[in-house]
């Protein structure tokens, strides 16, 4: 049986990473970061719990930043003119959403609803700005990764557009 006393004494010696860092390492926005960078990011992240059916955000609401799914799953939906809900995507553990809100002041373009109890990590515009001030190197790395991600999506969209036009 493990003794709590010994666990406390050797707490700092344990190099195993937390669940948050483990999740963050899978996100392309945070690739090429050091162990220290992940620890700093973990301290900045906001842990949020949502029950099944809870809105994470609503369409047209002001957007403040991105969410990373640590546990559970969510769906992205948009209301149609006929009053129905169209599900655009279902996202699971290790995926992220809402990252466009990090760059612009535009309102959210869809709803995000928890489809099971979930644990999310929130990373917001303010956090990114504080990070740029406190640790510009880390801030630039994240901005560069975000830029790369958006560039990749644009390239994919262009490719699809060209494919559609050539049909």
């Amino acid at each position: 049986m493990k003794s709590a006393k010994w666990e406390n004494i050797f707490k700092g010696w344990d190099n195993s990473e937390s669940e948050a860092v483990h999740t963050l390492k899978k996100i392309p926005v945070f690739k090429n970061l050091s162990h220290k960078d992940f620890n700093e990011l973990e301290n900045m992240m906001h842990h949020r719990d949502y029950k099944v059916g809870d809105f994470i955000f609503k369409n047209r609401a002001p957007g403040e930043g991105m969410y990373i799914i640590m546990r559970g799953s969510i769906k992205i939906t948009i209301g149609t003119r006929s009053g129905n809900e169209n599900t655009l995507a279902e996202l699971e553990k290790g995926e992220f959403f809402g990252e466009l809100a990090l760059f612009d002041d535009e309102p959210r373009s869809a709803n995000a609803i928890a489809i099971e109890d979930c644990k999310l990590l929130g990373f917001f515009t303010q956090d990114l700005m504080i990070l740029q001030e406190r640790n510009p190197v880390l801030g630039h790395k994240i901005m560069f990764n975000l830029g790369g991600l958006l560039g990749e999506r644009l390239r994919r969209t262009n490719h699809m557009l060209i494919k559609e036009q050539s049909k």
Partner: peptide, 20 residues
């Protein structure tokens, strides 16, 4: 962080913006 964590989910982003 304690203050931010105590904001209900419904007002979370708004509360965060207010504090900032």
């Amino acid at each position: 962080k304690v203050l931010v964590n105590s904001i209900p989910n419904k007002f979370f982003e708004l509360g965060l913006k207010l504090i900032y």
